[in-house]
Computed example of a mutant assay.
Amino acid sequence: MNDYWLLFSSAFISSTLFPGGSEVLFVYYLKQQFSLKWGFLLVAIIGNSLGSIVTYLLGFYVHFGQEKAAMKYPKTLLFCKKWGNVALLLSWLPIVGDVICLFAGWLKLPKTTAFINIVIGKSLRYLFLLALVALWP
């Protein structure tokens, strides 16, 4: 049970504006206890998705730091403006994925679609890692 909490915490924190590497922990747990793969997958997806949703909500409601982020990542902001909620399918990307979520909230992109696209993007990433571990034990 502690493995699930640690994975959830790692996945949550690493999908906010704080650095982290939940993928490494996810793969480690899969290598150690592959029979629990579906539990690990679900926990990682939920934790990582919730972290990105919190980042989106910070952008939507709090409005701090966006100007600095916009100056640091102007191409990411333009990408979010151009593609809207579809951009959130890439929320799994290192570094800019968190910024995409922040900008999506800042731009007031529709919440329901945003949350669905975040979950889809995060799910695809962890499913890909699960497939890699399954194919190359």
Rank of each mutant, 00 (worst) to 15 (best):
E23R: 08
L77W: 03
A134E: 15
L102V: 03
K75E: 08
L93P: 08
F18Q: 11
L77T: 00
L93V: 08
W136K: 15
G59L: 04
N48I: 02
V96Q: 08
V99I: 15
S49L: 06
G121Y: 07
K111N: 02
L124W: 10
P94A: 13
D3F: 01
L41V: 04
I53K: 07
L6W: 12
H63I: 00
L7E: 05
C80N: 02
L127K: 11
W5K: 12
R125N: 09
D98T: 07
L132H: 12
W83K: 07
L30W: 07
D98E: 14
L7C: 06
L127E: 08
W38R: 10
K72C: 00
I45V: 15
W106V: 01
F115N: 03
I116E: 07
K75F: 00
I100Q: 09
C101Q: 05
K82M: 03
V43Q: 05
L130P: 10
S22R: 04
G105P: 06
V99H: 10
S91Y: 04
V24T: 13
C80V: 10
R125P: 07
N2W: 11
L102R: 02
Q33I: 07
G47Q: 09
I46P: 04
W38S: 13
L107V: 07
F103Q: 12
N48R: 05
L7D: 06
Y61P: 02
I53V: 13
L42C: 14
P94I: 12
L124T: 11
F8G: 01
E67D: 11
I13Y: 05
W38K: 11
S52P: 01
S9G: 02
L50C: 09
F8S: 04
N48W: 06
Y29K: 11
M71Y: 00
K72N: 03
G51L: 06
F128C: 15
E67Q: 13
G39E: 12
Y126M: 03
W106K: 04
I100Y: 09
P19N: 11
F34A: 09
L58D: 06
P137L: 14
S123E: 14
A134F: 15
L130W: 15
L6H: 12
A131M: 13
V133I: 14
A70C: 04
Q33P: 00
L130R: 15
K68G: 00
F12P: 00
F79E: 03
A131W: 14
P74G: 03
I100P: 00
L41F: 13
L58Q: 06
G97V: 00
Y28Q: 15
F128G: 14
V119K: 10
K82R: 12
Y73S: 07
D98P: 05
L127A: 13
V43L: 05
L107G: 08
L129D: 07
P19Y: 10
F40V: 05
F26Y: 15
K82A: 04
T76D: 01
I46K: 06
W92P: 06
Y56P: 01
K68T: 04
A11N: 02
I116A: 13
G97F: 05
N48M: 03
N48K: 06
L90P: 00
K122I: 12
S14D: 13
T76N: 01
W5M: 12
Y126I: 02
L17A: 06
K122P: 11
G84P: 00
T76C: 01
W136Q: 15
I95R: 05
G97W: 03
S10Q: 11
F115R: 04
N117K: 09
I118D: 09
